[in-house]
């Protein structure tokens, strides 16, 4: 499926807007926003994940390319989840 030039530009504007929103939120933390710091960190990293998803789906064409490429892209995240599981489980297990 061909994505239009306009769509590419609109996504770019969204990426820039979400990034600036993250900057504003981080600057406002501890001040006007009644949220703990970990809450702001979670929101800003969530925005980063959305941005990464937009780039992967539309600019890297994962949403329209062969499905096998999406699976290849997901493999490292499965491995990361396994590694994280080992790291955090080892924190609770003392041999």
């Amino acid at each position: 499926m061909q994505i239009s030039q306009r769509t590419y530009v609109v996504i770019g504007i969204w990426l820039a807007g979400l990034m600036l929103l993250g900057v504003v939120l981080s600057e406002a933390s501890g001040g006007i926003l009644p949220l703990p710091k970990w809450g702001i960190v979670t929101i800003v990293l969530g925005l980063s994940t959305v941005k990464a998803g937009l780039v992967a789906l539309y600019y890297m064409h994962l949403q329209s390319d062969q499905r096998v490429l999406a699976w290849i892209a997901l493999v490292p995240f499965v491995l990361i989840a396994l590694a994280l599981g080992v790291v955090f489980s080892s924190a609770f297990v003392r041999l």
Binding site: M19, G22, V23, S26, K37, I40, V41, V44, L45, S48, K51, A52, V55, A56, Y59, M60
Partner: peptide, 22 residues
């Protein structure tokens, strides 16, 4: 080249808040 370049962009999307904002 585009695939590689977008990947580099994605890495920075996470590095920027982690290093500069918090």
């Amino acid at each position: 080249a585009g695939l590689y370049w977008h990947f580099v962009d994605i890495v920075w999307i996470f590095l920027f808040p982690l290093l500069y904002l918090f």
